[in-house]
Amino acid sequence: MPAPARTLDTSGRLCPFPIVETAKAVRSLDEGAVLLVISTDAGIATDMPMWCKATRNEHLGTFREGSAWKSFVRKRAR
């Protein structure tokens, strides 16, 4: 995975807040930059690909690591 420009740790937050916080974080990123979202809510695995498709950002992948999930998102170029 590409090196993230920013890492957002949403551990302990329940859905839909990891996505709410992702949306805010992506807004402040440069186009093409990568955001790494860490979540302890399993919902991220289904929510993140759908959110990326809806908002036309690129979902690079979501992986489980122990009790958390790591999700990589590239901000779309407008």
Partner: peptide
């Protein structure tokens, strides 16, 4: 989220 993704519509919570 699913509906917005299917129709490729930007969504805000």
């Amino acid at each position: 989220l699913r509906a917005a993704a299917d129709l490729e519509v930007d969504i805000e919570y």
